[in-house]
């Protein structure tokens, strides 16, 4: 199923990407080619095949999660050390509520 430029715009919006016109044109062509290729999977009948949920498949292993014990955190100073715009112990961002 061919992908349209309109769909590329919609996906970009879902993925929080602001593409240039040139990128939109390019991705429309490239994604169409990749999607046409992956549709190869439809040649296979998978009616009774369960989806693979976990890649490790170690029957002997115990994947039980660790006990829920409070450990040491990073602390706010370290957690903010890489922030582009820290302010008073917070991550500062532009206006959240948009008009309209």
């Amino acid at each position: 199923m061919p992908i349209t430029k309109r769909e590329v715009e919609k996906i970009a919006e879902l993925a929080h990407l602001e593409l240039t016109e040139e990128e939109k044109e390019q991705f429309t062509v490239q994604l169409a080619a990749i999607i046409a290729y992956v549709e190869k999977l439809n040649e296979l009948d998978t009616t009774d095949v369960p989806p693979m949920a976990h890649a490790g498949r170690d029957e002997r292993a115990d994947y039980a999660q660790r006990d829920d014990v409070v450990g040491e955190g990073l602390g706010s100073e370290l957690a903010l050390a890489n922030a582009p715009d820290p302010a008073r112990g917070y991550f500062r961002v532009p206006k959240v509520i948009e008009e309209g």
Binding site: H16, E18, A79, N82, A83, P84, D85, F91, V93, P94, K95, V96, E98
Partner: peptide, 15 residues
């Protein structure tokens, strides 16, 4: 927001 590059001059969070 938390680390790395941030584009300058955006007026809203989504932008």
């Amino acid at each position: 927001v938390r680390y790395g590059y941030r584009a300058q001059g955006a007026t809203t969070l989504r932008e």
